[in-house]
């Protein structure tokens, strides 16, 4: 049982670590791009009247919601698999 559970945890880690790295990259690219690419960030974006700096900052909000929801869906699946293993073990 232990090995099967550990394999599931490893599988989850494979998804979790790259996602978290992408979140950090996306988050820290905001201050970095404001510092390193001020001209580009101050240009008007595809939304009239809004600069890329605002669009990028706003995008962090739906990013947080989406990533949180994605994590929840994934964690639910993992819990179902673990409960399946537990049930098999009890039989």
């Amino acid at each position: 049982m232990e090995e099967r559970v550990l394999a599931l945890i490893r599988e989850r880690k494979k998804m979790l670590i790259p996602t978290l790295m992408l979140v950090f990259l996306f988050y820290f690219m905001l201050p970095l791009s404001l510092t390193l690419l001020p001209d580009l960030m101050n240009r008007t974006s595809f939304i009239p009247g809004l600069t890329w700096a605002w669009v990028y900052a706003f995008m962090q909000i739906p990013m947080t919601w989406l990533v949180g929801w994605g994590y929840h869906v994934n964690a639910k699946k993992l819990e179902e698999k673990i409960n399946g293993i537990k049930r098999e073990e009890l039989k």
Binding site: L20, V23, A57, Q60
Partner: peptide
């Protein structure tokens, strides 16, 4: 202006770290 709003972003994204790494 813009810089004031950036505080909020840091506070919000911090919940991803809580959720992914420590909450459960």
């Amino acid at each position: 202006g813009y810089d004031g709003f950036l505080y909020s972003i840091g506070f919000l994204v911090s919940y991803i770290v809580v959720l992914f790494l420590v909450a459960e």
